[in-house]
Design a protein around this nucleic acid. Structure first.
Lengths: 194, 194
DNA sequence: GGTTTAAATAAACGCCATTCATTTGTGGAG
DNA sequence: CTCCACAAATGAATGGCGTTTATTTAAACC
């Protein structure tokens, strides 16, 4: 055809993002392709490349949404809590549970690697920092007298550890250990920091 | 040609594995292809498929070698140590450092996902268990009076945490936190378990 | 020396990301 | 109202990939 003008560029982008998200959720990275996204929104591949520079460009947008979703979920689950130690435990469990609830999104976020030399997308990690800020603030409330530097170190170590459990849980690599109760595992990990 | 009989099947397999390893190390997963491996050993792709069922089959062998290398390195670095707490610290640092020293191998091992439904290869995780056994035994020496169940839980939580640091360090995702001294981070994580 | 048979090849299939010359509809100028 | 310029969209091409298969070729055996 050519020149339909049915949807604005911005609308097309949004349609493509939604279609890509659905495709990732249902088929995972293995079943994903630019062609499928294009045909899902009723356009050709060529047009998709006028909306996104390449596949990674689209992935980055999807990952932004994922990080935002994780952040909002954890914020919602913890903000009303008085007890900061409890908030940290809930946050950690929520993070891990997210990975299990959305394995394909998680995988796109954490196991897809950009080509070497590509800078880590700025926007993509703002929400990670926000989430991290939540944890650090809670940890500060638990240990008010700690100095900021060691608090930062502790918060980083804590969250790295939680991330580790999430990664292993999501990929079933803890099964050999006979431990399927990730909640207890997480609590034990968190405990060392409280 | 057809029927050269220059190398036995086993020799060809070994050549292919070595070539694949070199290719992964130098170009990473992105630059890897069965065709490149085949041409590196002077055979055609077709022949490669008589040696390995498919690409994943080859990857599994590579990952076995990686896990063995990690296990042997950490064993060598810790077995002479008297102090078990120190051994755990060294092991954790060694694990993380391995990921940084061999980013592409690490990536193949931990961020390549088999198609869903494929069982986690048995042989692949035997060495992971061996490594894990090392840690658990050391932890037991640190806390002789602990009951086995909670010891197992602790060892799993500890090593999951260490794995988390390794994953984030390897993919540069700790840079935003301003922490580049993974050693201190690791020590802090380990500290909660000692 | 001829025949069987295993080893290896070459070509094919269907997919992929990405690019680009070409077509087609639309909005504006006369 | 018509023509035209230009933006939107297409479709085909390029070069790569994993994997399969019919076919060829050389060695082994009788």
């Amino acid at each position: 055809m050519g020149r339909r003008n049915e949807h604005s560029r911005e609308e097309q982008r949004e349609m493509a993002i939604a279609a890509a998200e659905a495709l990732i959720v249902s088929e995972g990275m293995a079943g994903f392709s630019m062609r499928k996204v294009a045909s899902a929104i009723g356009y050709t591949v060529g047009q998709l490349y006028l909306l996104f520079r390449n596949q990674d460009d689209l992935f980055i947008v999807l990952n932004e949404r994922t990080t935002e979703e994780i952040y909002l979920e954890i914020k919602a689950a913890t903000q009303a809590l008085e007890d900061s130690a409890e908030a940290i435990r809930i946050a950690a469990r929520g993070y891990i549970e997210y990975g299990q609830r959305h394995p394909n999104r998680w995988q796109l976020l954490f196991s897809h690697r950009l080509p070497p030399g590509t800078p880590v997308p700025q926007a993509n990690w703002r929400q990670v920092q926000s989430l991290f800020g939540l944890i650090e603030a809670r940890l500060q409330q638990v240990r008010p007298q700690a100095d900021p530097a060691s608090l930062h170190l502790d918060a980083t170590a804590l969250w790295s550890g939680v991330h580790g459990v999430a990664v292993l849980a999501q990929s079933n690599k803890l099964s050999w250990s006979g431990l399927s109760d990730y909640g207890r595992l997480t609590d034990r990990l968190v405990q060392g920091f409280l």
